[in-house]
Simulated scan of single mutants.
Amino acid sequence: MTRSPYRLLALSLVVALTVSACGGGGEGAPQGGPGQVTVATLKAEQVGLTRELPGRTNAFLVAEVRPQVSGIVARRLFTEGGLVTAGQPLYQVDDASYRAEANSARAQLARAEATANAARLSARRITELAKVDAVSQQDLENAVAAQKQAEADVGAAKAALDAANVTLGFARITAPISGRIGKSSVTQGALVSAGQADALATVQQLDPIYVDLTQSASELLQLRRELASGRLQDNQSLPVTVLLDDGTEFDHKGTLEFSEVSVDPTTGSYALRVKVANPDQVLMPGMYVRAVVGSGVRDNALLVPMQGVARDAKGDTSAMVVGKDNKVEVRPVKVSRALGSKWLVEDGLKPGDRVIVEGLQKIQPGMPVQATEMGAAPAKPATPAAAAAADKQ
């Protein structure tokens, strides 16, 4: 009983020496063999490049309804917010005075026609008498001149009647274009005047509809340089995808109509206009949208998953690749734009490079690794029974 403490002390020393011998490989020795990583092997492919631009919707046609005569609004002939067609009556202005003017002009025309008919008959008789020298030459000339003056008076009376009818027609205000009409700024009984500043209502054609976009002028210059160098092939004729404010894709594709020829000096951007079919009138003027516009097609492009590219505090980007002898290498890379979940590589990588996308926290440059291709089924881990059998062998 007295020697038991010494026996416990000796046993503790043996255990300590055993543990020390098991860990004697040094701190830098790899534990458990090569690190397990997932890689993405880069392949050259053809990529269609697009740019997502902000914009606002604008009506295809806009017409303000204004009175061309003065008077009291007798009736409003449309429903606010409804659809109207070109030529459809919208307002009726009290036209009593204009109708009286038209009737007066019609009476003046009838009088002028009667006078012209009498002058015509008189000139015919005097012409017959002049053939037998029964009247003087002066009388003949006066009769012919009176006939022509009477005919001119008929023309003037017709023109006056036409003008009166036009003015009378303006008393019924019609829709200048087809589209959806907004609220009315006047009610029945209001006094309107020709040339007034305020419009009575506004009609907008919403199918199709315009989407006005803005793009940086520097981005345009870069695009032109790439097209001129042959790195890109033009694909601006492709349909334009419109994204709504909530991120959903609009059902109908648009077409690029034109690009502005000048740059806004205050913003350094220029405008593009896209025309989009809008049969259900989901898009309304003034809505904020984004449009995906094609900028070019690049051949032999390299795309690397975003998780395989790291960025330091200075903004420099790099990637870890599996190099010779399955050891980790660090490559400085240059990427330009995001295409979905991948970066477009401009420099630093080449086809066939295996970029590490998973397991980056467990590796260091120069460390040997065992790589599994991204998307491939991972190797099944060994069961405890299989591991014990392997140890016995």
Rank of each mutant, 00 (worst) to 15 (best):
V242A: 02
G28P: 10
V135I: 14
G179A: 04
Q46L: 10
V65G: 05
V335W: 00
N300A: 14
G23I: 04
A310H: 10
A145R: 02
K183M: 05
D325E: 14
I356N: 00
M287D: 01
Q215C: 09
S218C: 05
L220N: 09
Q147A: 11
N142T: 10
A217E: 05
A171G: 06
E329P: 03
K314T: 12
D153H: 04
G268M: 04
D245R: 13
V39S: 02
F170R: 10
D139A: 15
Q222D: 14
T174P: 00
A160M: 11
A102Y: 00
L238W: 06
K148D: 05
G286L: 00
S193N: 09
R75A: 14
Q149E: 11
T41C: 04
A118Q: 12
N165G: 04
L8W: 12
L200I: 13
S262I: 11
G286M: 03
V192F: 03
V132M: 06
A382G: 09
T202C: 09
G32F: 12
V289P: 01
S259D: 06
R273D: 04
D325I: 05
G32L: 09
Q236S: 14
R111M: 11
A386L: 09
G323W: 01
R298A: 15
K183H: 07
T317A: 13
A150T: 02
L220V: 11
Q215K: 05
Y98C: 10
A175T: 07
T383W: 08
N117T: 14
G230A: 07
A171V: 02
L232N: 03
P89S: 08
K275H: 06
Q137W: 07
L244E: 05
V19H: 08
D246K: 07
A114W: 08
A10N: 08
P365H: 12
L8M: 12
A228W: 01
V261K: 13
S122H: 12
I363S: 00
V292I: 13
Q138D: 12
V282D: 15
S336E: 12
L8Q: 12
R120F: 07
T255W: 02
E151A: 14
I173W: 01
L109A: 13
Q68G: 12
A382L: 11
A107E: 11
V345C: 06
V211T: 11
A156R: 14
G24E: 13
Q137N: 13
E226W: 10
R111V: 14
S295L: 14
G195W: 06
G55W: 01
K275I: 15
V263C: 06
C22N: 07
L223Y: 09
E257A: 13
A16V: 15
D312W: 03
T383P: 01
A134V: 05
Q204E: 15
P265A: 06
L303D: 01
D264S: 10
G25I: 08
D207A: 08
G23R: 06
A319Q: 00
A21I: 13
P368V: 06
M306S: 10
K324W: 04
L360E: 05
G189F: 07
A338H: 02
Y98G: 08
V84T: 04
G25M: 11
T202V: 15
A171K: 03
G179L: 05
V93Y: 01
K342A: 12
L90K: 01
D162S: 10
A376G: 06
A160V: 03
D264F: 07
G348E: 00
V357D: 02
L129R: 06
